[in-house]
């Protein structure tokens, strides 16, 4: 069993969904969704609200159980190994919230320790710096932090944990253009380090800029899946609007 696990940790596909379906009563949130993301790849899932993007991410985090199909992280079934698979993941939700009475360093220290990794203060500060958080903010309580600053702590966590997988749910929504740019630069850095990234977003421009693959979801189904390099921004926009308009008509 241990050998099997060890082998699976070096699995080529870091994030996998196989015929993932999630139903809430009669409503199908995700319908027969399949994709793979390898190390060093970024898949941006585009789609309107309710398209199934967040449900997919929540399934990968085992926050919800699939109705059918499989979800795997580093080759391990998320439902069977919920705690083990989370050790590979850093999750940054739309509005990453931290403990307001703790400083950035203390927050990072706490979350890394929960992931069974221990660092000294200098190392923690180095991770925060690498994530782009200004040094004077390191020892400040995060209650006064902007969303962009909190997202940087999230990225620092991914760096500190040496996460193989980054799951991002609308991470740039509400960020100012500068912070958004900085965040995209960080993602590119992470990708280049070999991290597999799944990002749910509405932002076509950022998706085109940062991703290696793009998927467009509607009504829980993956309507279009393509390498980013195969599409121009204009083409992407046209396809996206076509898919969205189809939804609108219906």
């Amino acid at each position: 069993m241990a050998n099997t696990k060890l082998k699976k940790q070096n699995y080529k596909h870091m994030i996998t969904t196989k015929n993932l379906t999630k139903k809430y009563g009669d409503f199908t949130a995700v319908n027969n969704l399949s994709f793979n993301i390898q190390s060093g790849e970024i898949l941006c899932l585009l789609g309107a609200n309710g398209a199934g993007k967040s449900t997919t991410i929540n399934s990968l985090l085992n926050f919800i159980e699939p109705t059918s199909g499989k979800v795997e992280i580093n080759g391990l079934d998320v439902v069977k190994y919920p705690l083990k698979t989370k050790t590979f993941i850093t999750y940054i939700p739309e509005n990453l919230m931290l403990y307001p009475t703790l400083t950035a360093v203390e927050n990072l220290d706490y979350f890394t320790k929960l992931s069974r990794k221990t660092f000294n203060k200098t190392e923690l500060k180095a991770f925060l710096t690498e994530a782009g958080l200004q040094e004077e903010a390191h020892d400040k309580r995060v209650k006064a932090f902007s969303k962009g600053m909190r997202q940087k702590v999230g990225i620092a966590l991914a760096i500190a944990k040496d996460s193989k997988v980054l799951l991002l749910d609308e991470p740039t929504s509400g960020l100012d253009p500068k912070s958004s740019n900085e965040f995209m630069e960080l993602l590119t850095k992470m990708k280049n380090k070999g991290v597999a990234i799944l990002m749910a977003t509405h932002d076509l421009f950022r998706a085109k800029e940062v991703s290696t693959h793009i998927g467009i979801m509607r009504s829980g189904m993956l309507q279009k899946y393509s390498k980013t390099t195969d599409l121009s921004l204009k083409e992407l926009e046209t396809i996206y609007l076509d898919i969205m308009n189809f939804k609108h008509v219906n």
């Binding site: 985090l61 926050f63 919920p82 705690l83 083990k84 698979t85 989370k86 050790t87 993941i89 850093t90 999750y91 939700p93 509005n95 990453l96 919230m97 931290l98 403990y99 307001p100 979350f111 929960l114 992931s115 999230g154 799951l167």
Partner: peptide, 13 residues
């Protein structure tokens, strides 16, 4: 404070 999702995503038992 919506820290629970981040907490759960760390794989804490």
């Amino acid at each position: 404070h919506r820290t629970f999702t981040l907490l759960k995503s760390q794989g804490v038992h």
